[in-house]
Structure formats: C-alpha cells, structure tokens
Amino acid sequence: MLDALTLTLGVAALALAGWCGFAAYRDQPTKDWHFIGMAVVTLLALAQLVVGIVRLAQGGEPDEGGVIFVAYLVGAFCAVPAAGFLSLTERTKWGSVTVAAGAVVLAVLEVRLTDIWGGTGA
C-alpha cells in the first residue's frame, strides 16, 4: 500500500532531520552513521518511486495527474542524496544543517504526494 510507505518515509525523513539537526547543534559534520541513515531513507524513497510507477502502470489514477505524481516521486527520491553530497563538500555543522533541511523537504514532498494521489486510493 502506498499510504503506509508514504507515512513510513515521512516519519523516517523527520527522524533523519532531527538526527542531523542534533549533530549540527553539537557542532558536528555529517558522519558515516548519518550517511547510512541517508541511505536507508533513500532506499525507502526508491521503493516508493518503484511502487508508485507500478501503481500507475496498473491503471491507478492520481487526482492531480500522472505527470505531477511522477515528478514529485522523482523529486522525493533525489532530495536526500543531493543534500548528502553537498554535505560532503562542507565538513562543518552547516553540512549537517543542509541534510536536515533536505530531509524536511522530503517530508513536505510526502505530504504533497498524499494530496496528489488523492483520498480515494484507487
């Protein structure tokens, strides 16, 4: 079910945001453990991308259209890795802040994705 995955991803993204925010609060850059966390969140986003496309292929009809739906899925998949790569170039707490911001962006995208898919659930 797409809803369960979206909820899991949203919660995981917020947890990652909190974790990296805490690292920034302690004046630390992103470390290996943070990158493992980012990888987990990214894998979830990849799973969501695949499930979303499969649902579309099965004839599911998002309320706001398939193009927007796929665009948001791709955006959600890219958000955390992009922020992660940026944090590799900035080995200070600001790298951690950026990853936290990226995770918040992902959580917001998840909320939008549930809107876009719509309440009927096909």
Partner: peptide, 22 residues
C-alpha cells in the same frame, strides 16, 4: 559564496529552482 551558511542557502535556492522551474 558556498561555504558555511552559504551551503544551506544554495541548497534551499536549488530546491526552489527545481520546484519553480518544473
């Protein structure tokens, strides 16, 4: 310009670019 807080700034601007352009 992309160092320290500038990194966060460029990230947020990047997100806005992707959002607004698409």
């Amino acid at each position: 310009l992309v160092k320290g807080p500038g990194l966060l700034l460029v990230w947020l601007y990047g997100v806005m670019v992707v959002g607004a352009v698409s």
